[in-house]
């Protein structure tokens, strides 16, 4: 928890700096006031550029995830179009602070991860791209520990090729 708070504080400080720069330079094409734009400086560049599920979990959360049957994943077993695969994750694990979605065979495994605040329910629905038939892994951070669940999706038309 201390880490989370510290991160929030750092993010806030950086946000002020970035917003100031954006306004001052006029480089960034803003449609809204800079102050309301979220801050992407905490975005984990490295975790999003790591192939492999276990490596990515280690990079993102700094720990290994253990299997859990308390994570429910709802996604098609066969996806006709790999460019749009709906993935829903829900869990009964307590005190969830984060949910991550990983696609094992994508060039970079991490597709998305979510910071879940205290008031939010551990439920996330998102649409992902998948290059080929692959395992989809949901990682849930509960009480500071990582848990994961895996489900396979057959992709008939890949969503990452050209």
């Amino acid at each position: 928890m201390t880490d989370q708070r510290r991160r929030g504080f750092l993010k806030g400080m950086l946000g002020v700096g970035v917003a100031g720069f954006a306004l001052g330079s006029g480089i960034v094409p803003l449609r809204v006031e800079a102050a309301t734009a979220p801050d992407a400086s905490g975005w984990p560049e490295k975790a999003f550029n790591t192939p492999g599920v276990d490596e990515t979990i280690a990079e993102l959360y700094g720990m290994e995830a253990s299997e859990s049957d308390q994570i429910t994943m709802d996604l098609p077993t066969i996806a006709q179009n790999g460019a749009v695969v709906p993935v829903t994750v829900e869990t009964t694990l307590p005190n969830v602070t984060g949910i991550a979605l990983l696609v094992a065979k994508n060039p970079n495994a991490l597709a998305a991860y979510f910071d879940i605040s205290e008031g939010a329910l551990p439920f996330i629905s998102n649409r992902l791209k998948m290059a080929e038939t692959t395992d989809v892994v949901a990682v849930v951070i509960s009480d500071g520990k990582a848990y994961k669940a895996t489900q396979n999706v057959k992709v008939t038309v890949g969503g990452c090729g050209g």
């Binding site: 695969v85 597709a111 992902l128 791209k129 969503g159």
Partner: peptide, 8 residues
Amino acid sequence: ANWGPAVS
């Protein structure tokens, strides 16, 4: 939500 390019 922290998104990567694999989001549709």
